[in-house]
Design a binder for these strands. Structure first.
Lengths: 191, 191
DNA sequence: GGCAGGACTGGACGGGCGTTCAAGAGAAAT
DNA sequence: ATTTCTCTTGAACGCCCGTCCAGTCCTGCC
């Protein structure tokens, strides 16, 4: 029992943030309350108030947590050529782990949240900007013949299709259409 | 004052539904309560309960109301040729009245809502299906050389780009990128 | 052992919520 | 004039919420 306490001690905050994202994805923001999160995480509601200033602080912390995951989407595998890296990044957004309802639903809730609160909007806009920048860099490396402005334009257009892919996937897009959309992204990048 | 009462009497329900959509777009679902809607509409909260069974019934009614608007998006102007009709429909989604933050934010909240509640999901899925069907019909009329299956495929892909266009516009997409995305839709339809 | 301090609990408080309902206002029918 | 009906109000109920805080547990340090 002693090691359980020790192990869980440090993980209590992680447990809470996990619970926030889980409840957010499943029930939307109106299902997220300090008390419901505490119940989901299996801790007292007082502890949530102890670790995070208030409700906004709690959600902000959860947002920053999922943000880290996003950066990985355009991270490059050093073993690949620039072209392979770009293709891998373009295909990664249609990978199994991201096309789950859980993940997409959470994403949608984050976008939705950003519209209702300025602090959340700031976080979201910055994450989006960072992703677009990473994508443009990948294109630039794979297509040295293009100017930076052209790469930025391509990245913006591809980002539109990708966002549409995620959103529409959530609304029930079939696998074949998803595959076609990914191919469209590759065409946009390489043609 | 007598006519005011008479006029407003019949419009009281409209007033309430307008208020729901306004609050939903501005503050998200967590800002929508029977009482906040009543305040926004300038009526007593008891009246909202009188006209609508409960909170879910109220939001459902508001959803059905905005749904009517959507059907108009693929409605055809009889004076145009099939090709012109299709182009008009494709360009309409980037029209000023739809690219406002208010409208897009509301749209996003509807999508978000659909993830959190089954009844809302049903309404949303049907609306989406109806739109895709209308788009496929427009393509079929403009491109008689294509099979119905090909038209459906094209409609699905275009729908992805359009959804992405709306979503990304909300997150701060520049006008030039929007124009490029609309052009992409036209290319997809006609090439 | 004693103690300081961080982690954690659960009760208490005031407030907003959804829902219900008795009461009233006004128009139409009798 | 009285009745009947629909529309409308605001008070009342119990519930869950966010926040605060006194108290408890555990660990590391002297």
């Amino acid at each position: 029992m002693a090691d359980t306490t020790t192990k869980e001690r440090a993980d209590r905050q992680e447990l809470i943030l996990d619970a926030v994202l889980r409840v957010l994805g499943e029930q939307g923001i109106s299902g997220v309350s300090i008390r419901s999160v505490a119940r989901e995480a299996g801790v007292s509601h007082g502890l949530v108030g102890y670790h995070y200033d208030d409700k906004v602080g709690l959600i902000t912390a959860a947002l920053r947590r999922i943000e880290e995951q996003d950066v990985g989407l355009v991270s490059a595998d050093p073993d690949l050529t620039p072209e392979q890296r770009l293709r891998a990044a373009l295909r990664r957004i249609a990978a199994k782990e991201f096309l789950t309802t859980d993940y997409l639903s959470l994403r949608l809730q984050l976008w939705s949240l950003a519209q209702a609160d300025e602090e959340f909007e700031r976080i979201n806009t910055e994450a989006q900007r960072r992703y677009r920048r990473g994508l443009a860099d990948l294109i630039r490396a794979a297509r040295p013949d293009l100017t930076r402005a052209e790469c930025n334009r391509k990245a913006a257009t591809i980002n539109v299709v990708q966002n549409g892919l995620w959103l529409t996937a959530l609304l029930g897009l079939d696998r074949a259409s998803i595959k076609r959309s990914v191919e469209l992204c590759e065409e946009l990048a390489f043609a």
